[in-house]
């Protein structure tokens, strides 16, 4: 999923300070799962903002809305009938959601309330870690299901570097060395030999080096 974290409160407050009518719009997808911008977080942030305004002796009208999927025009359309009632939108979705709103409602300013971070998986309750950088040319079949692009600090395709220490990356003791994990997994699979096959220089075009990426599925077009 796409992970995100709420922005510092001060930054959020500064961004909406000129407005007194706000739509606070969450999303039921990824940001709900990573507890950054679902219905619950929308409620909590609304409460926090109201308290802030109360303390200042100002009123703010916050309408809490959580869309099924903020990156989908179909669901974003739900706001169409009401958007004129607000001065600004504060979005708690990932950057895709923010842009979908901004693209649809061109006359209403949209501000992000979260920082979108990475595509990750849950390691444990409350812990998410980066797993994929969407390079567009998946190597996981060659690397024992562990991604060196996302999980090696230097994105080495022929690692590990000399900085690995007791299976950890040199950048921090709590970061696993991806190449140690790959090696262990290849061993477990009886595929150590594969390690010595050189991975050629990567074509980064599919990873975004070729400009913004897009998928067009002709079979699905209306």
């Amino acid at each position: 999923m796409i992970t995100a974290e709420q922005k510092p409160l001060k930054e959020i407050i500064d961004s909406i300070s000129p407005y007194e009518k706000i739509f606070l719009v969450g999303c039921n997808e990824c940001v709900t799962v990573c507890a950054a911008g679902g219905r619950k977080e929308v409620g909590l942030l609304a409460s926090v903002l109201r308290l802030h305004y109360l303390k200042q002796g100002r009123t703010i009208e916050i309408k809490e809305i959580t869309l099924e999927r903020q990156c989908d025009p179909e669901y974003v359309e739900e706001l169409a009938s009401e958007i004129h009632r607000t001065e600004a939108v504060l979005s708690m979705a990932c950057g895709c959601g923010v842009q979908t709103l901004a693209g649809r409602y061109r006359e209403t300013p949209v501000f992000p309330a979260v920082n979108t971070l990475f595509m990750g998986a849950s390691e444990a309750q409350g812990i998410w870690a980066e797993r994929c950088q969407g390079c567009g040319d998946c190597l996981l079949g060659l690397t024992g299901g562990i991604c060196p692009v996302a999980r090696c600090s230097k994105h080495l395709l022929n690692g590990p570097c000399g900085g690995t220490s007791h299976g950890k990356c040199e950048i921090a003791p709590d970061v696993d060395c991806a190449w140690c994990l790959i090696w262990e997994r290849l061993k477990a699979l009886g595929l150590e030999k594969r390690y010595e096959e050189i991975m050629e220089a990567k074509d980064w075009r599919s990873a975004g080096g070729g400009g913004p990426r897009k998928i067009v599925r002709k079979d699905l077009l209306l």
């Binding site: 109201r50 308290l51 305004y53 109360l54 303390k55 200042q56 002796g57 100002r58 009123t59």
Partner: peptide, 14 residues
């Protein structure tokens, strides 16, 4: 609480 300290109409509104 800081909310009450303001003692404004806004508080009563909520």
């Amino acid at each position: 609480s800081p909310v009450k300290q303001m003692n404004t109409d806004s508080y009563r509104q909520t």
